[in-house]
Computed example of a mutant assay.
Amino acid sequence: MALTALAILDGKVLPADEATIGVTDLGLLRGDGVFEVISIYEGRLFAMEDHLRRMANSAQNLRLEIDLGAVQADIDALLAEAGPVTGAIRFFVTRGGRRVGLVEAVPAEREPLILATITYAPPRIMDGVKSLSYAGNMLATRLAAEKGATEALLVTPHGRVLEGPTSSFFVSLDGETLVTPPLSDHVLDSITRRRLLAMLPHAREEVVTREELHGAREAFLASTTREVQPIARIDEDDLPLVPGPLTQAAAEAFAAHIRDALEA
């Protein structure tokens, strides 16, 4: 079913281009608010409880009061109006108290990515907060594009690999195991990342350095909208396996996990 540009604003469903918030809302002025992006598969939401739980944690850490019951009701109403679509719902709550949800399309194809490393220092005060303040992340993607890449790979000034601007990073350095940077390195506690770590027997958290990437065998980015997307090159290094067997196994396992969750 084709996606219609729909939104919900404080409980009212309307065309997306008619949903507005006031210019004095600190969500607009300061990026002060929280958000989640939830996958829809033929009208069914995936990992909804996890997303609501993370939104509640983000709001608590940001000292933002939200009504999760109203958020759930808004999402249900928006999904009922949208019908059996496949895509995503982007839902955010602002410091001004506005609840906004949007139905969005997601790419049908997930071509292998070319990454460029971008130096980035995560603000520790924002640990555990998925906030609206994403200007730095979006700038990283633009800087990567200026280098001829399709996405950025964030790396600390000391050379520790972190994540993509909107996704988690997994890499195999030995061709046998997958590693992803630990939460202690101040990466996002991604729902997709957490589920992949739980389901893949050869995946674990481990510090990864920029220098180690020169010997990478295969790698992928993972997120709600990407699922598992292989990586073809990082800076000047072409990866030999695209997609590699571990990446393919991760993609297949996650797709099966989604199907099982939706059927349940």
Rank of each mutant, 00 (worst) to 15 (best):
T20M: 13
P201L: 08
S58A: 02
T4H: 14
S58Y: 10
P165Y: 04
A80D: 10
D10T: 08
A88G: 10
R110F: 04
G175L: 01
G69D: 09
Y120A: 05
S172V: 00
E163C: 01
G215F: 02
A16P: 03
L246W: 00
E263D: 13
A144M: 07
D235M: 08
A140P: 05
L6W: 04
K12Q: 15
I191V: 14
L154D: 08
E109Q: 15
I75S: 11
P122E: 08
D50S: 15
V106H: 03
R194A: 15
G96T: 10
H214M: 12
G164P: 12
V93R: 11
A140E: 03
L213P: 00
R259A: 14
A203C: 06
R142E: 14
H186L: 13
A198S: 13
Q60H: 14
L45I: 11
A198W: 01
L26N: 12
S184Q: 11
D238E: 15
A149V: 09
L78D: 10
I191L: 12
V187W: 02
E36L: 02
M126W: 11
A216P: 06
I125A: 14
A59L: 06
A59V: 11
T4Y: 12
T177N: 09
V208T: 04
G159L: 04
G128I: 07
R63A: 13
A116E: 12
A19C: 06
D174L: 01
A256I: 04
A80G: 07
M48A: 15
R90C: 09
L143A: 10
L26F: 11
L102Q: 08
A249Q: 12
I118N: 09
A250I: 08
E218H: 00
L3Y: 04
P112E: 06
S131K: 10
M126Q: 11
L52Y: 13
L45K: 12
A256E: 13
T225A: 10
P157V: 04
V100F: 06
A232F: 09
A219K: 04
L6F: 05
V161G: 04
E81C: 11
M199A: 05
A135F: 13
F170D: 03
R259S: 13
P165D: 00
E18A: 15
E81Y: 02
D238I: 01
F46E: 06
L196C: 06
G96A: 09
H158R: 15
E206T: 06
E151Y: 01
E109T: 14
T177M: 01
L178P: 02
L6G: 12
I66G: 06
T192L: 06
V187G: 01
L14A: 11
F170T: 07
R193Q: 02
A59S: 08
E49C: 02
V93G: 03
L200A: 01
L200K: 07
N61E: 07
D74G: 05
F46S: 09
A255K: 10
G33T: 06
P201N: 07
T177L: 00
E211Q: 15
L52W: 12
R259V: 09
E163H: 04
L79S: 12
A255Y: 01
G97N: 04
G148N: 07
D10P: 00
A140Q: 03
F220E: 02
R54M: 10
A73E: 14
T247K: 00
S172Q: 00
L78R: 05
D50K: 13
E176G: 03
A253S: 13
L26C: 08
D67Y: 07
L173N: 00
E176R: 14
I114D: 15
R160I: 13
V85Q: 05
F169E: 00
L246V: 00
T86D: 02
D10Q: 08
